[in-house]
Simulated assay, not measured.
Amino acid sequence: METKRVPVKIEPKLALGLLGRAEFGRVAFVFNGSPTIRPLNHVVDDGRIIVFTRHTSAFAQAVMGEAGLRVAYQADEIDPHSRLGWSVLVSGTAANASDDRRAEQLGKKVQSWIDRPLDTVIAIDPLEVSGLRLTIGS
């Protein structure tokens, strides 16, 4: 008999907690008129998603080019064998936080996979947080 997987909604506060445990996520935004998705390392700090990137990246350029840029940020943790786990989606606005007095501290918390100097801290303020956990159902 095949295992039945059932999606169960996750409360927003718990969803942000799960997002904080994820190694990386994906940000979706519009850049030069085209939908764009980029993988990013992040931390969750005081309810905001913080990423550290280069000022020349497409994401930083889009954020600097449009105040309050609307974005979606998604992360998940799904076991490839059992296909159980969770997925979190945040929609919100992104802003350059490099001038924030805590920006240097926040940027250092982000463990980037990129081996080059990063100089731009971007904060995503969630407007909506949703999540699903895939569990075994009956």
Results as ranks from 00 to 15, higher is better:
Arg116Cys: 09
Ser112Trp: 00
Val71Pro: 11
Met64Gly: 09
Leu127Thr: 15
Lys109Ala: 10
Val43Met: 01
His55Arg: 14
Ala75Tyr: 01
Ser91Glu: 13
Arg70Ala: 14
Ala67Tyr: 06
Leu40Glu: 14
Ala22Leu: 01
Ala94Val: 13
Ser87Tyr: 02
Pro117Gly: 15
Ile122Pro: 12
Ala95Lys: 10
Ala72Trp: 03
Leu19Tyr: 00
Ser98Asp: 03
Ala60Arg: 01
Gly137Glu: 11
Asp79Leu: 04
Phe59Ser: 09
Val90Ala: 07
Ile78Tyr: 03
Ser34Pro: 01
Ser87Leu: 04
Val90Cys: 09
Leu14Gly: 04
Ala75Trp: 00
Val121Cys: 07
Gly25Pro: 08
Ala58Thr: 09
Lys4His: 11
Ile114Ala: 12
Glu66Cys: 11
Ala28Ser: 13
Val129Tyr: 02
Arg21Phe: 00
Arg101Glu: 15
Val6Glu: 15
Arg48Val: 02
Val110Phe: 00
Ser34Gln: 09
Arg38Glu: 14
Ile122Ala: 10
Ala62Met: 04
Ile49Leu: 08
Arg116Gln: 14
Asn41Glu: 13
Lys9Val: 09
Leu16Ala: 06
Gly107His: 01
Asn41Leu: 04
Phe31Asn: 11
Thr3Tyr: 03
Asn32Pro: 03
Ala97Ile: 02
Val88Trp: 00
Ile136Tyr: 05
Ala15Trp: 01
Ala28Ile: 07
Glu128Leu: 08
Ser98Trp: 00
Ile37Gln: 12
Arg26Met: 06
Leu16Phe: 05
Lys108Ala: 15
Glu66Pro: 06
Val121Gln: 02
Phe52Pro: 08
Lys108Met: 12
Ile78Leu: 13
Gln111His: 10
Glu23Ile: 00
Val51Gln: 09
Arg5Asp: 02
Gly68Lys: 09
Gln61Ala: 13
Ile50Lys: 03
Val129Ser: 07
Gln105Ala: 13
Asp79Pro: 06
Gly137Tyr: 07
Ile124Asp: 12
Ile78Gly: 07
Ala58Gly: 10
Val6Ile: 12
Met64Gln: 15
Arg38Cys: 13
Ala28Glu: 04
Thr53Tyr: 03
Met1Pro: 11
Met1Thr: 12
Gly25Ser: 07
Arg116Trp: 06
Gly68Ala: 09
Pro117Asp: 12
Arg133His: 06
Arg116Asp: 10
Ile37Val: 15
Ala75Gly: 06
Asn96Val: 11
Val121Asn: 07
Ser91Asn: 11
Ile49Lys: 06
Glu23Asp: 15
Glu104Gly: 04
Glu104Cys: 00
Thr36Ala: 05
Phe31Ala: 14
His42Asn: 11
Trp113Phe: 14
